[in-house]
């Protein structure tokens, strides 16, 4: 079994927690570091390892309250990665996109990113 990943949340990078045994990934916080790609590379590598070695059902919770345009490309890459896993292994991914109930921009961003994809995504409003 691959190792779990645990990144503490900072002011400009989200906290990342994985639960390999349950196949759950959680990403939560603000995302606008100086180098979004450098931050995100270990996460996509972890996902690749899970997809190659565990080959099990994956649930992804994304709860980002702000991300800049550079980070938005990383989130887009994440969706591409999930979509291809979903496609190759046949419906093995569920994504939850959590957004503050009156934050229309975050909701819209999520909707636009999955436009044209056929994996399961649930939009989950929360109140603060």
């Amino acid at each position: 079994m691959i190792y779990n990943m645990m990144l503490e949340r900072t002011k400009t990078t989200p906290g990342v927690t994985t639960h390999v045994e349950d196949g759950i990934v959680e990403i939560e916080g603000e995302f606008y570091p100086e180098d979004a790609v450098a931050f995100f590379t270990p996460i996509s590598e972890w996902l690749s390892a899970f997809m190659a070695e565990e080959k099990r059902f994956l649930t992804v919770h994304i709860r980002l309250t702000y991300f800049n345009t550079s980070a938005s490309k990383c989130v887009m890459d994440l969706f591409d990665q999930l979509q291809s896993y979903h496609y190759v292994s046949g419906g093995a991914v569920e994504t939850y996109w959590h957004y503050q109930e009156d934050d229309e921009d975050i909701l819209e961003q999520g909707k636009e990113m999955i436009d044209g994809m056929d994996m399961k995504i649930f939009f989950m409003p929360y109140s603060v």
Partner: peptide
């Protein structure tokens, strides 16, 4: 992404 733009000019 390109070397000239980290966000592909999305900003």
């Amino acid at each position: 992404r390109s070397s000239e733009s980290k966000g592909a000019g999305l900003g």
